[in-house]
Design a protein around this nucleic acid. Structure first.
Lengths: 185, 185
DNA sequence: TTCCGCATGTAACCAGTTACATGATTAC
DNA sequence: GTAATCATGTAACTGGTTACATGCGGAA
């Protein structure tokens, strides 16, 4: 499992609550890893039992009490050694690709429309990434350390989305030649 | 779930055994969907209970008996309507991206080495895809129907791998400037 | 004689999703 | 008055992985 380690990375960057971790997994770190709050709370408790993190209850007024998590020395050790472990190569799982492959068993033009719909969603996501890049890393050449690493991952997200858009355009054009060119969404 | 539908697509292309389906999920269809034989047998049984597929026992000599599955009329209907359903956009999950983001909490150069290792694996995969493309689709412009759709998905796999290689090169260079340029593997 | 390919499965487990629940504060 | 934000959880379930099991035939 890698959610533990994704949490370790996120908490090592900054100690915070489970709630906030869940938000981070929907934005910054989320382009390459997602998790729901339920899953995060579950894993955090296990990590605390194992001594990888430690939590402090913080009372607040007007707002519910919260539990702030931070990485322990043992957690840092775990993270360090995990980073040196070799992992399996990525395997992608794309439902849309299955639909494209099966297009002949339905209506290829309907599948093309679905591809264009996904294209629009990913174009939006790409735009969001560009905005993040501009806002958080205006001068990429000057980056070092953690900032650089964060930027590299964001770059990966941008590349991935760009690649998808190109592919979707190619597929949509091939599946439905009556519509020409990519939309400008 | 989409494994059911991935199996429907594969079986609709050609009726076969669970064993052979498992092999297909490690090659052709496998660049965008993977499944173990255990999972496939489990799902096939459920699909048969639901009437999506039907199986025939075939005795063989020298080899164990086998059970050949084919898609029923109901299965084709299911496949047809699933192809028209809208799905969620893809979410990628990349353990390596988490490692890159966390590089500062370990040794960045060790992470760079891991990135280069993945680069080599994906370069190999890309080469395999190119060979498949050349062998199975020597004349892409002439493709129509199922063949065209299969080719489009293979194209997606090729694009994806190419994009990864570029990204890995960028990351490896940034994490470990002492080594210059991508390897020629 | 040892390993690989064909062929099918069971059992235990782990990771992740979906649905539901609570409750105060702030902004529209 | 209605919805969103902060904050944490339980319970049931689904999808997928890992380990183990069986057994024949052919090739090295």
């Amino acid at each position: 499992m890698a959610l533990e380690h994704a949490i370790l990375v996120s908490l090592a960057e900054r100690a915070t609550t489970g709630y906030d971790l869940a938000r981070r997994f929907n934005s910054s770190i989320g382009y390459f890893w997602t998790a729901t709050h339920q899953q995060i709370y579950k894993v955090l408790r296990r990590m605390e039992d194992d001594g990888w993190v430690r939590s402090t209850a913080v009372a607040q007024d007007g707002r519910p009490d919260k539990r702030v998590y931070e990485v322990t020395a043992l957690g840092r050790e775990q993270l360090h050694s995990w980073l040196a472990e070799p992992g399996d190569p990525e395997t992608t799982r794309s439902e849309l690709a299955v639909k494209i492959r099966g297009a002949a068993f339905g209506d290829p033009r309907t599948v093309a429309a679905e591809v264009r719909r996904h294209r629009a969603l990913h174009a939006q996501r790409l735009e969001d990434y560009h905005k993040m890049a501009q806002r958080d890393f205006p001068e990429p050449a000057a980056l070092r350390g953690q900032q650089l690493h964060q930027w590299l991952v964001l770059r990966g997200g941008i590349r991935l989305e760009e690649g998808l858009l190109d592919w979707y355009d190619e597929v949509a054009a091939a599946l439905d030649p009556t519509i020409t060119g990519p939309e400008t969404s």
